[in-house]
Design a protein around this nucleic acid. Structure first.
Length: 490
RNA sequence: CGGGGUGUAGCGUAGCCCGGUAUCGCGUCUGCUUUGGGAGCAGAAGGUCGUCAGUUCGAAUCUGGCCACCCCGACCA
């Protein structure tokens, strides 16, 4: 048993926190709700960023950067948007400090009050649309396909490392289009980019869907989302994409002259994923021994632990492995050869398991004689002794297997914890077990609120692929045309 | 922000009720033996007891304020 990690079964949220800390991903900072992302954790985020950024570029987007501060007046221009964010905004009121008269340190200089207070961005729609106003005059200026990587601040009451922090890192795409159809297509395209990324990189199966009005982004006409299931059966929104209609264009007066020589407001989208994906990654795959990372995102994909008594043995091992390490690296596989003498092999085994390194290769004097090595895979903990000849191909194959296997495992888990429910009694019973409940809903906000009140479950989404099916609402008994996903959520 | 809990060496903890300058384990350092699943023995270093104030001859211990974190709730990606 790993030292110092709470078991998932004993206390899921403690387990999660232990993992984040023990695997060296992040720690709390001096400021409440803010986190320090440590190098090991950040390198996973960097891999996510790179993969996503490539996908954004492939779909025609470019990066830009908009400021951290937003004039307070901007935020009030789109009514529902203000409504959504006003309660969690950090506000800058002064621009200078001075030494305290009593010598106790520095104080805010009351002389230095800002004329107009600045909001630390909780999201950038307002600054961006106020800028787009200047950039768009004619249909020839459209579409604008811009993304930015940035930090945002939402003053959350209750925070958890990665899942909900006061400051977090994300990307936010903001696009402007000449037609509604084109904007909807953009929002749907980016949702699919996120879904594929989640499935192929995070090895995380997701449900593509749309949010109900209750759960919709403040200021959007339609919110698309990908929803994933964590190992405790709770849902986690892993990404969102919004069709903004003309809401922000109207609020910020962004109009273009069409081919027909008529002025029209542009159509917008916005879409984002955040460092919350780190939380999803951790909670989806890991176990009581520590992290389980999909090979595509693992900072170290293969760790080699040499077993030796003296420098002579170590050198013999290294001589044998050097060309193999080079070859692995040339194939883009990240390898760590851990020849430190500070820890014993057994300690290293446990430590790399804790950090989720997908493949471990142990090699000692016996192996050198036999021309073998012991390969261990993190996901199943299976060990096998294999020939050193052809080891590079074996490892490549193993990494692919692991990526696929943890996806399959997560998918199986989700399927086993997704239930169709048709009665309110069944609903109340099953929701306690966790998981997704597929139930009919009468499409009213009131029903959704009452179900939330009674069970803490919300409608995670209306799946895009949910088939039409006649039924009656699980709560009100009114007619319904399709099932939606209910779950308790992060 | 409301209710509950916690804060003692790098980490995890005992001591607190019943006041007298702090226990143990891990880790660290030195030496030897070890090295295929978190090594053994011997020795050593390491503490503003979260913080500020109060009570007291004396505070980790009692009282109050503040800060941080955790759990539950409201809110949320």
């Amino acid at each position: 048993m790993s030292k110092g990690i709470t078991s998932r079964n004993d206390d899921y949220s403690e387990w999660y926190l232990d993992l984040v800390k023990r695997a060296d991903l992040a720690e709390n900072s001096a400021v409440r709700g803010c986190m320090v992302i440590k190098p090991y954790g950040y390198s996973i985020w960097e891999k996510m960023q790179r993969a996503l950024d490539d996908k954004f570029k492939e779909t025609g987007h470019v990066n830009a950067y908009f400021p951290l501060f937003i004039p307070k007046s901007y935020l009030s221009k789109e009514a529902s948007h203000v409504e959504g964010f006003a309660k969690e905004c950090a506000v800058v009121t002064h621009y200078r400090l001075k030494n305290a008269p009593d010598g106790s340190g520095v104080i805010v200089d009351p002389e230095a009050k800002l004329e107009e207070e600045l909001i630390v961005r909780p999201t950038s729609e307002t600054v961006i649309w106020s800028t787009y106003k200047n950039w768009v005059q004619s249909y020839r200026d459209l579409p604008l396909l811009i993304n930015q990587w940035a930090n945002v601040v939402r003053w959350e009451m209750r925070t958890r490392l990665f899942l909900r922090t006061a400051e977090f890192l994300w990307q936010e795409g903001h696009t402007a289009h000449a037609t509604s159809e084109e904007a909807v297509a953009e929002a749907e395209q980016m949702l699919e980019v996120y879904a594929k990324f989640a499935e192929e990189w995070l090895a995380l199966p997701v449900v593509r869907g749309v949010k109900t009005p209750n759960e919709r982004f403040a200021g959007a006409v339609e919110t698309y989302c990908i929803e994933a299931m964590m190992q405790d059966g709770k849902a986690l929104q892993a990404g969102t994409s919004h069709f903004l209609g003309q809401n922000f264009a109207k609020a910020f007066d962004v109009q273009f002259l069409g081919k027909d020589n008529k002025l029209e407001h542009v159509w917008g989208t916005s879409w984002g994923v955040s460092t919350r994906l780190m939380g999803a990654l951790i909670m989806a795959h890991s176990d009581d021994q520590g992290l389980v990372l999909p090979p595509k995102l693992a900072p170290i994909q293969v760790v080699i632990v040499p077993i030796f008594r003296n420098d002579e043995q170590l050198n013999a091992i290294y001589d044998r492995l050097e060309p193999i390490i080079k070859e692995l690296k040339s194939k883009g596989i990240s390898v760590k050869f851990d020849d430190s003498t500070a820890e014993k092999p057994g300690w290293k085994f446990a430590e790399y398991e804790l950090r989720g390194v997908p493949v471990r290769m142990a090699i000692g004097a016996r192996d050198l004689e036999n021309g073998t090595t012991e390969l261990a895979r993190r996901d199943t903990k299976e060990k096998q002794v294999v020939s050193i000849d052809g080891i590079v191909e074996t490892i490549q194959q193993l990494l692919e297997d692991i990526q696929q296997n943890i996806y399959n495992k997560a998918l199986k888990f989700r399927e086993e914890n997704t239930f169709k429910v048709d009665t309110w009694e069944d609903f109340q019973e099953k929701i306690e077990l966790g998981g997704f409940l597929l139930a009919h809903w009468d499409e009213t906000s009131e029903t959704e609120d009452q179900i939330k009140e009674a069970t803490k479950a919300t409608i995670r989404c209306i799946p895009l692929d949910s088939p039409e099916e006649e039924g009656v609402c699980v709560f009100s008994g009114k007619p319904s045309k399709r099932r939606v996903i209910f779950a308790r959520a992060y």
